[in-house]
Design a protein around this nucleic acid. Sequence first.
DNA 1: TCGATCATGCACTAATTCTGCAGGGTTATC
DNA 2: GATAACCCTGCAGAATTAGTGCATGATCGA
Lengths: 310, 310
Amino acid sequence: MIDARLITLRVFARCGTIGATAELTGYSPSAVSAQLRELQRVLGMQLLTKDGRGVRLTATGRFLVAGSDALIAQWESLRAVAMEAGDQVQPRLGLGGFSSAAAQLLAPLAATLRSTRPQLEVQVLEADPARCFDLLVAERIDLAVIVAMQSDTYGEDDPRFEQRVLLDDPLDVIVPADHPLASRETATLEELASEPWITEAAGSTYHSLFTAAFTAVGLTPRIAHEAVEWETHIAFVGAGLGIGLLPRLAPLHGAENVVRLRITGKARPTRRIVVAARRGSLASPLIQESIDILQANANRILTARLEEDL
Amino acid sequence: MIDARLITLRVFARCGTIGATAELTGYSPSAVSAQLRELQRVLGMQLLTKDGRGVRLTATGRFLVAGSDALIAQWESLRAVAMEAGDQVQPRLGLGGFSSAAAQLLAPLAATLRSTRPQLEVQVLEADPARCFDLLVAERIDLAVIVAMQSDTYGEDDPRFEQRVLLDDPLDVIVPADHPLASRETATLEELASEPWITEAAGSTYHSLFTAAFTAVGLTPRIAHEAVEWETHIAFVGAGLGIGLLPRLAPLHGAENVVRLRITGKARPTRRIVVAARRGSLASPLIQESIDILQANANRILTARLEEDL
DNA sequence: TCGATCATGCACTAATTCTGCAGGGTTATC
DNA sequence: GATAACCCTGCAGAATTAGTGCATGATCGA
């Protein structure tokens, strides 16, 4: 209901280049360029200035984008409450999430919604957390399941989003099957500190989790290799290159030469998985129901783990 | 920036029929029909139901319209503040007002703006107060100069509008040139109560002013004739059909056979002339400047009258 | 200086949106 | 109870708008 061009401007405000905005919104770069030019014409405001080979928001543009947060939230809220009041049906729902979330939480959600609301068009996009926020702003998705980041660009009080905790997913350690600890069920970080480690690149979410966990016990382990996908981590570990952390939600896919151990002791790294939505949209019955389903699935996973641990 | 279809829905909420909405917004009836159908499709809400030969808002529709007041106001405010912050220029300004206001206040304003902001496209629409509010909602105009109505559909606290008093325009009495009182400068309502009167139709603004003024002094004069335009009032009076009220702002146009007298005494009917804008838009520099010019013109008129009265 | 990166303008095309008219249903009038 | 008046809607066609893909120009880093 808010002009698509304003949404485009908001996406641009986040990624800074026309090209990235185009990729994120699904338009071509020329379309984005034309939209923003048109927006400036209609509003009679100069929102962009040339900056090197790119463009940059003017002060007015930044102001407008900042102020539009409340506008978007108000619209989302209005729509949501109207939906609830009128018992109406939303025609489309976009979901986003990173790989293991997409597999373990979003897929069941989509399946449930498919059966309970057959005429609802559900679209699931696998995307990393940062991109999920971008997609939320771009209105490509309505819900995102992400790993909460402690001090990232998106605080919990961001005026654009609202978040709900789904579950705390502990990180296990994976070791080669022929590793001395492989026969154990559990291990402590202290026991593992001297091993060669495989992590994600510095600056990534899991690297931060990794270092935070070890600094909590006063250790700084050696990072031997870096990988992005869990599949790669597992392969590296299986090849004996080192050991690594693996979230409980991430499956081993029956890798024969790798063993997963629970981490015990003082420091137990976990990742917090939350669901995020555009601020104001939580009142929508469809959003609410989806979050409830996600929450139920998360709880099912948690209780299954508890039973498993007994 | 707010979707045009929502604006259309808001206009429909005011006038109740597709045809009137079309006339007010400048679309054809089929376009309005299609827009509202499309709006319902996009939102997944049923906003309208058939009602006899027309259509009617559903509860959801009314809810959405009511809630959109705040949304529109917020957008207007955001745009206005961004305009002010960025020293930008609005490309278009729409002005509306009833006949004498259009002539005496809007025309000078438009002329001033033409010279101070040559590239601004100014459009003036003459329309009665009720229609002015409709046009404000339809975003055809941005400012309306109207007669404040004591207990009309638009209270001063309407969430859609904001109003500023421009001036209180006293009502004079006009009598035929051969009337016994024609040589006088002033008259009281008591002196005039027994005359045959010419007013607007019952229910109109001026009829209300008329009866309110006389009931204040405990009299109920006889209404002999009814007229809509001031021109007609003057012609009726000139023809000796009776006497009538005429706002100070409304010119006699050199009617030779009619004399204008000031009303003195306890009850002096006046009409309050105010300028109205969509709520939130007052912060816009252009709107603000326009109101200032209107106010200055109003004051000029008032001081000119004071000098004239000396 | 060369290549890479970005944005923008242009010609063309696709999609949307509007108009005018015809048609069907509903209310008021005689 | 026929008739007229009124109101909305659907459809074909037209006009406007919006998007794509490529070419161009401008800037930055190597």
